[in-house]
Structures are given as C-alpha cells and as structure tokens.
Design a protein around this nucleic acid. Structure first.
Length: 314
DNA sequence: GCGACAG
DNA sequence: ATCTTGTCGC
C-alpha cells in the first residue's frame, strides 16, 4: 500500500481557485488521525509526486506551511485568484474543496488490522525460542535503515547483527505503524535461521485496536513477538511503578493491555506488551531479563545500529 | 495555554 | 522518527 501516492492523487484533485485542508485530505485517505502525516508527506515527498501543496491549508482557514516559504505559497495562490486576509484564506468556506474521489486506503488497512487482530494468541507458544531478535529502524526521507540484533537469552549477550536498507511508501500514522515498518523488518527476518522471539520498538496489544506493530508482525509471520515502547500510546495506569524491576498494569476497556515497567531508577518507565504467541507474563519476564539500562539490550542495540547506519550513509 | 497520538 | 551542546545529578 503506497500512502504517499494515495496522498498525491488526492491533493491533485483540488482545482485551481480552491483550497482544501490537511484534515480533509486525511479523511479522504480514510482517517482524520492522518492529518499531520498529510503535511509530512507533502513536505518530504511533495516534489517527486508533483502535487499542488500550496492548495492545502489549516482547518480554520489559516495558511498552513510550505516547504518553499509562505510568501511563495501566497503568490502561487494569488495567481489562482485565492487571496489572504489577516493570515487567513479569504472566502475560505466558499472555496473549500472536500469532494474527493477516493477508495479510503486507511479504512481498508483498519479492516485488515481488525481481521488479523482476531488471530492474536496471548498464550505462550509450546516452546519459546532461546533467542530474541531486537528490531529498530532509522529514517532519512523515504530511505529506511533497519537493524536486527540476535540476542542469546541464556548467555545474555548479542550474537549477530543484521542490516537492511529499503525505500518506504507509508508515512508514520498513529495506530498504523506496522504498515510503515513491517516491510523493513521482514527483510531482516528473512535472513535469520534460528527460531526467535521478535522484540519490536513499538507496541503489541497495547493499541486502540489491540493490534500494534509487534502483534501485526507476529501474526503475519506466525512468530512470537513482544512490543517495547518508550511512551504510553493508550490506556490508563492506576499508579506509576516506583521500584526498579516492578511494573504496573495498563488498562483499556477494563482489560490489561500492557505493563509500565520501571527499568531505570531515574528514567520514565517503558511500556511492555505481548505481540503474538506469548503471554503478558513471559513478555515482561524476557524484557526484565534482557534489560540492563532503560531499554532491553536487543532493541537498544538495534536502535544504536540503525542510527549509525543512517549517519554513516549521509 | 494545556494535553497529547507508538515510531 | 528527526533537528541538537552542554549540563545537572545519581
């Protein structure tokens, strides 16, 4: 699914003499939550996709942003008889275009997530592997650098590092992270021969639809997986964990969807949730066992590696 | 201005 | 995720 192209196809429908909003384009993509992603897409990928970014403005009629500067945006709009009035688009309500032709790609994606979410298994698979594969990605525009760190649980040490580079076609949209990063991780996992537990930078079932990237990846590849996030995506926690190595449940709709785990005395807790083919208890146990600093070693090392790959490639 | 939506 | 030096504190 190429959401960059889908975004370009929508913005190209806005006629000269009219404007639309970031949120309207997002709704046409299938979810208003993608409004910020629309701005990011135009800013980062607008030129190659050739879309009239200058016709996209804020919901209240504010001017919005422009990669080449606001004066240029206003000049281009003026050439189409669209003018500014005190920092707002004149006659905004009457020249607002929202009548997009679309097949709502994000609605399709959500439907797919909901179907796949039914396959999530939260019990431990017969025999959990002795290895963890920590996964993380770093970005420069449309280019992604992915790293996987194979980690021996018993010996408590990294064994091998995998690296991949790939083009991506999906922006970061909250609750759709899998569609952006799974293609990267698949390329890494293809090279791994040992049975592993996937440890992903992101969430498992700690997700508004119970289907974060760790669950998504685990179900698609039929592998046990764990999600480890640095901030809370959703749900409520009764109290903050204070003691090192202790956790507090995160509740959503009266169900426990994850744990806030204190792994460092001074840092904020991390958020652990099972992805697939693993229990909450085992997911937590493995994260605790592999954590020396704030983040568990497999993801921490993968993060360092992915960042280094990007920097050395500049 | 506040709160906040993983990466 | 990315843009970014030094600095405070355990």
């Amino acid at each position: 699914m190429d959401l960059y192209k889908a975004c370009g196809d929508l913005v190209n429908q806005v006629p000269s003499g009219q404007v639309t909003t970031y949120g309207s384009v997002a709704k046409a993509l299938g979810n208003h939550i993608a409004r910020r992603a629309v701005g990011v897409v135009m800013n980062t990928y607008g030129p190659p996709l050739k879309m009239p970014c200058h016709r996209v403005v804020y919901a209240g009629g504010g001017l919005g942003g422009f990669a080449y500067g606001l004066p240029k945006k206003m000049k281009m709009l003026a050439a189409e008889n669209v003018y500014e009035n005190n920092g707002k688009i004149a006659d905004f309500e009457n020249i607002l275009f929202t009548d997009f032709k679309t097949n709502y790609p994000l609605k399709k994606a959500r439907k797919e997530q909901l179907a796949l979410a039914k396959k999530v298994n939260l019990k431990d698979s017969k025999k959990l592997p002795n290895y963890v594969l920590g996964l993380d990605a770093s970005y420069n525009g449309t280019k992604a650098y992915g790293a996987g760190v194979l980690f021996d649980i018993k010996k408590n040490e990294p064994v091998k590092t995998y690296r991949v580079e790939t083009k991506i076609n999906f922006p970061y949209v909250p609750s759709y992270l899998g569609y952006r990063e799974i293609p990267i991780y698949k390329k890494i996992i293809d090279q791994v021969n040992e049975p592993v537990i996937l440890m992903v930078d992101g969430n498992g079932i700690l997700h508004p639809y119970g289907f974060g990237i760790a669950s998504h990846l685990g179900v698609l590849l039929n592998m046990p997986s764990i999600g480890v996030a640095k901030s809370k995506f959703c749900g409520e926690l009764a109290s903050m964990p204070t003691e090192l190595g202790k956790s507090q449940p995160i509740i959503l709709d009266k169900k426990e969807i994850g744990k806030a785990l204190k792994t460092s005395a001074r840092a904020k807790p991390i958020y652990v949730s099972p992805g697939h083919d693993i229990s909450m208890a085992s997911a937590l146990k493995i994260v605790i066992k592999t954590a020396r600093l704030k983040l568990p070693e497999p993801t921490r090392l993968a993060h360092i590696e992915a960042t280094e790959m990007r920097r050395s490639d500049l």
